[in-house]
């Protein structure tokens, strides 16, 4: 059992929707990432998604691009982020940590070496630019070290692809709610619900919905069909705004997440699709 499946089982038992919170590691400075991770948990985060900064984040919008640039000003590397998670695990051994990034930094570190180093620390990995067609060997390496390979599904993913991806995935499936980049404002709840329902025809894994969820209202609107919601750019925007006052950033993030968590929990049981 991984921390991810434990977490989803626990939430499913009380029919709650999980809150996944994203920050870019090393933003605004690597020395703040550990305390920001703890703040995410204090705000009600169930799973942490930790972005690995990359110089060319093609699938991200301006907010996360800028976060990558801030982190790279301090040369934040895969190794640095692993060290930060090691620190985090000293105080928190239950909250799942998922790395989200682009293939090149992992490839240069060495996929096998990374899987080995991350095995007891990191629970899952989302590699944005690594579709199943390119990841057969890589997913095996991660599996050998108990790291779930979490795949993205998109509005353009047809039934056949959903089936293929579902057969390779573990942990959970991540549905990208619209055609676009992170931080955009294009959320259409009805189409998300229809697609998530189609995904459930092919997989029993929990389905997380991300992109375009920025507050309690948008989180609640997708919670009725999703097992988890992902909040990213809204948190990163707070960090950008308060980069020189990390305590203020933490307070604001906790306030945002608490309001989202409250909305998600209020949603509990009433509308959930069986």
């Amino acid at each position: 059992m991984t921390r991810i499946s434990d977490c989803f089982d626990r939430l499913a038992a009380s029919k709650r929707t999980a809150l996944i919170s994203y920050i870019t590691a090393g933003d605004p400075h690597p020395k703040h990432t550990l305390e920001l991770m703890h703040a995410l948990v204090e705000g009600g985060t169930d799973l942490i998604e930790l972005g690995i900064p990359f110089s060319d984040p093609m699938a991200d919008g301006p907010v996360i691009q800028a976060a990558c640039e801030r982190a790279l000003q301090h040369d934040t590397s895969v190794e640095d982020v692993l060290n930060i998670v090691e620190q985090f695990r000293k105080d928190n051994n239950t909250t799942p940590v998922i790395f989200m990034g682009y293939q090149n930094p992992f490839e240069i570190y060495g996929v096998n070496a990374f899987a080995k180093a991350a095995s007891t620390l990191v629970d899952g990995i989302i590699t944005v630019d690594l579709p199943p067609e390119e990841s057969a060997d890589i997913a095996v390496a991660y599996r050998q070290h108990d790291i779930d390979t979490i795949y993205l599904l998109a509005p353009t993913t047809n039934g056949h692809r959903i089936q293929t991806i579902a057969s390779l995935a573990s942990g959970f499936l991540y549905y990208v709610s619209f055609k676009g980049i992170t931080g955009a404002n294009k959320l259409d709840v009805d189409s998300v619900a229809a697609k998530v329902s189609q995904i459930r025809d092919y997989s029993k894994l929990p389905v997380a919905v991300g992109f375009g969820i920025k507050d309690a209202v948008s989180a609640k609107s997708v919670a009725s069909c999703a097992d988890a919601v992902v909040v990213g750019s809204a948190i990163v925007s707070i960090i950008a705004e308060h980069a020189d006052n990390i305590n203020a950033a933490k307070d604001k993030i906790k306030a945002l997440l608490s309001s989202i968590k409250l909305a998600l929990d209020a949603n509990e049981a009433t509308q959930k699709i069986a």
Binding site: E133, L152, N158, R161, G180
Partner: peptide, 20 residues
Amino acid sequence: RDGHFGVYGGRFVAETLMTP
């Protein structure tokens, strides 16, 4: 068939672009 020249090439993009 998958666009590889030996170990090079391929299709390393976000899922949204795979079908297009």
